[in-house]
Design a binder for these strands. Sequence first.
DNA 1: GACGTCCATAACCCATGGTTATCACAGCAG
DNA 2: CTGCTGTGATAACCATGGGTTATGGACGTC
Lengths: 302, 302
Amino acid sequence: MDVHGRDLRYFVAVAEELHFTLAAQRLFISQPALSKQVRLLEKALGADLFARDRRGVRLTPAGEALLPHARRVLEAWAEARAALEQARATEETRLVIGMSTSPGRGGMLPAVRSRLTEAHPAAVLELRQVGWQDPTAGLADGSSDVAFVWLPVADRRRYRWIVMAAEPRHVALPSRHPLAAKDAVVMADLVDEPFLALPESAGALRDFWLAADERGGRAARIGAVVNNPDETYEALVDGRGVCLVAQGNATLLTRGDVVTRPVTDIGACNLALAWRADDARPLVRAYARAAAGYARAVAAPA
Amino acid sequence: MDVHGRDLRYFVAVAEELHFTLAAQRLFISQPALSKQVRLLEKALGADLFARDRRGVRLTPAGEALLPHARRVLEAWAEARAALEQARATEETRLVIGMSTSPGRGGMLPAVRSRLTEAHPAAVLELRQVGWQDPTAGLADGSSDVAFVWLPVADRRRYRWIVMAAEPRHVALPSRHPLAAKDAVVMADLVDEPFLALPESAGALRDFWLAADERGGRAARIGAVVNNPDETYEALVDGRGVCLVAQGNATLLTRGDVVTRPVTDIGACNLALAWRADDARPLVRAYARAAAGYARAVAAPA
DNA sequence: GACGTCCATAACCCATGGTTATCACAGCAG
DNA sequence: CTGCTGTGATAACCATGGGTTATGGACGTC
């Protein structure tokens, strides 16, 4: 039913040489091995491919019929290998960058990219938006190679990261909300408000954006679950609740009828560039280095 | 370097099912065997073809790249098998009839053919002239399936035959030869003449046409070696010697300046239809039966 | 008649491709 | 939380396959 590609190579070699010993040398195997394999092929196909007699080796009609097809099979396989090689090459230069929301922040992405391309000019970067269900922005299921994520990261041992920015947390409110009248708020103002929450699957990150550790032990009331900036905006103007937001992401929500106010007494939030700890691919590590270099440069400008 | 076609089938099956257990059932092998083979294929290619995780089995970019090519290889192989099958089918209906000189003799060939086509309407007969170097007219090297030959046949055990015609032997002479004046000659007239002989490779048949057994122990003088009717005619008019010829073949030589005369005191010659004893193919045996039927009919006409 | 060439065969060895039994893990019902 | 179900991976085992070297037998050559 099937053949081994090797057997076809052997067949073609003998058909070309019309000489088992020479063909065997060309194939770097012993002559008996070649004889045996060709015989087995003939047996498997149920037809003699070569007529061997005193005068030498000739192709039978069946062999003549097979030869061009055997060449085509081998050629198709060679193309398959070439396609694989091609795929591997593009895979080596492609880097998928996952992100939950635009990292933005004054050209961070282009800056890191330009640092990367110094070392890897052939790199092709691909940006990918990932819903908030996945706090790793695609690292977990392999759909991203590196990702801009908010700390804390789910599994400390499976991932490594570099903090790219630390920002105070603000609260986003409908503009008609009583607290909107104040310039800044404290957590105590918010503990009784319903909150918009990340999906359950976001795990520790959900708690972080609910400020669960800063409520003095009182559980948050969940007004709605939101999966992306658009849903969040709609839920805010709809009065379903309020939510915390990184200072740098405030503009994603303040489109109209929504305002943000600093929350002065809770910890900052950290945007990080993360990658899988077991991912040793050069391009991944190079991107991480580029990001670290950028982060250092921003922290201590010349 | 090479692949086994089977491995490609396995790969395609898994790529289609995206489910090892189901694919294994479709392939009628156990699931572990399939897992193992696919892993080995991946290892051999140096690239993962499937991403297996909780969410199930998916193709990697490398797998995506390989899939269409794998299908093409399998398709090319299927075509190869079809071509082989085709070759075998035509081989089963083709019969090569070898002959040293035209058997002629009043439509013997068409008569046998019409008997054969009663049983094998699809048979395709192919006539093939074989030089006199090969007394088996191509049976020995397989280039003929059946052959019209003159007895004796070289190796009595490798061949079987049916006598199709028994004819007296004549002698062919240049028309200016003294013996041409007689109506018939006896062997004693010829023992001192130079003879035209078949090639050495004709073996016993060479001796037969030299009438070696009818010379009373005196060896023949060889005037020339001839390989076909044209050479024979030229050698005769050139005066290189004389030669024996079957009565039914006399017209091949008597074109002008050559005459034939009966040799009254030597044995007849027998034209036979021969085939390889180990050749059990239906078409060969059927042709032999057709020939035998024709020979009987001629011997005992209704 | 000894020798060289060429393909086939024999005896042997280890890698391969298959089997069954079992594990590890996620998803889910109770 | 527990146990069941369904998934792919792993382990242990066995027969076959694809290779090796050594040898045989048929032909052609000097």
